[in-house]
Amino acid sequence: MNWKFWSLKKSLFVYHVNAGACNNCDIEILELLTPAYDVERFGIILVGSPRHADVLLVTGVCTRQVKKRLQELYLQTAKPCVVMCIGACALAQGIFAEAYHVGPCVDEVIREVDPNAIIAYVPGCPPKPEAMIMAVVKTWQKLDELAAAEPKPVAPALPEVAGA
């Protein structure tokens, strides 16, 4: 098995980006760190610098003002980096799709700068913490597939994750 992907599975550094969310997803993400869920068990920790990140947790609709900053942020991360869209807003703008101050969907924003980005989607408004852990598990499976497929080009998107 490819050691790169094996170790990536075991140690995920997460950077949380709030791109115009309503806090629901954000407090549920914090919930993951606290004793009830404690994701440090799986080697997942929140980091303070996007350079160290393996996963960008994006919550919220990605408003106009945020779009450019989100792209810049993604470019700053060291690849491979998985973008995880948490919640209905980040997925497909949810209830805010028609609002005047939102930009494109989060995945479109990321694809604009990197067509081959690995993007995972966690639906739910907000997704339950269990669903987010499930998303991580599915991401691991995807990484396994990628590891098997290397050095072929990276598949465009992850399957939707069940839950919530």
């Binding site: 709030n18 115009g20 969310a21 954000d26 610098s49 919220g60 945020v66 900053r69 942020l73 101050h101």
Partner: peptide
Amino acid sequence: MAVTKDSK
């Protein structure tokens, strides 16, 4: 709405 900030 919510704020975000890139590291730069």
